[in-house]
Design a protein around this nucleic acid. Sequence first.
DNA 1: AAAAGCCCCTGGATGC
DNA 2: TGCATCCAGGGGCTTT
Length: 271
Amino acid sequence: MPELPEVEVTRLSIVDRISGAQIRAVSLGKPLRWPLQTDPKSLVGLHVVAVRRRGKYLLLDLDKGLLLIHLGMSGSLSLVTRPPPAGKHDHFDLDTTQGVLRLSDPRRFGAVVFAHSEQDPVAQRLLGGLGMEPLGGDFDLRLFQQGLARRKGPIKQLLLAGDVVVGVGNIYASEVLFLAGIRPTVAALRISRPRVARLHQAIRDVLARAVEKGGSTLRDFSNAQGEEGHFQLEAMVYGRAGQPCKVCGTTVRTVRQGQRSTFFCPQCQKP
DNA sequence: AAAAGCCCCTGGATGC
DNA sequence: TGCATCCAGGGGCTTT
C-alpha cells in the first residue's frame, strides 16, 4: 500500500492534530517487523513536537527522541479521539492527549521504532542508505544522472531500491516510467541524458499528483482520518495488463522484475 | 560496489 | 462455510 504519496498523505492527516500532544500510554499488539527498542512506559509523558517524513518512513519527533513509523505493505494509521477496541490487526496504539494514533497492519511488515536521535545507530540503520527526496528542493538532476550512470541493472529496480531516490514503490515506478516514456527493463546507464531529465521530472510530477489525489487505495489504504485515495483511478498502466493503453490503445503488458509485477505500454515506452 | 534472491506475514481471488 | 496456489503497496539481509 504505502509508497511516498500514501505516507505523505498520512502525515498531512495527522500533523496538525497530533503536534503538541502528550503521550499518555503506549500499547502493543502482535510483534511488528522490528521491536520498539525501548520500554513503552518510557515514552509516557513525552510530547509530539513535529511529524516529518523521510522516504517511506514517518518520523514522529518527540521532545526526547523520535519514533520511526513504517507502514510496510499493508499498514495504515488512524488518529481518533475515541478508538474502538483494538482489533486483530491493530498492533500499536499511541494514546495521547489529542487522540489515539493507531497502526493497523495485517501483514505486520510495518514497524514502530524508537531512536534517541536521527544519528542514533538504530535510526541510521534504517535511514542511512536512503537516496534523495524527490519532492522539495533536494532532488538534484545532476546527482540523479550520476546515480544512474553506474548502474547496469534495469531502471525500474533502481527506482524501487531507493538508494538514489526514495519513495517510488511498485505502483509509482510503473506510472513514472510510463510518463517518461522509458521501458522499465532498460539498463539505467543506457538512458540518454534528455530522457533521464524527463524521468527526473516524471518522478516529481507523478508523486506530487498522487499526493494531491490522496494517494492510491487499492485494497484498504486510508489516511488517518479514514479517507481513501483516488490516484488509482488515474493509473495509466499499473494493474492494467491486457487493457488498452490510455494514450495509444496498444495492449498494456506486464513483466516480472525481482518478484514484483511491472506494467508498461510497449508502444509508448521505448527501450 | 552492485545485483539477485530470500524472507518476514495475512488475506483475498481464483481454480480444482 | 473445502483446499491449493498465486498474488499483494516493502525492504533489510545474505549471497553471488
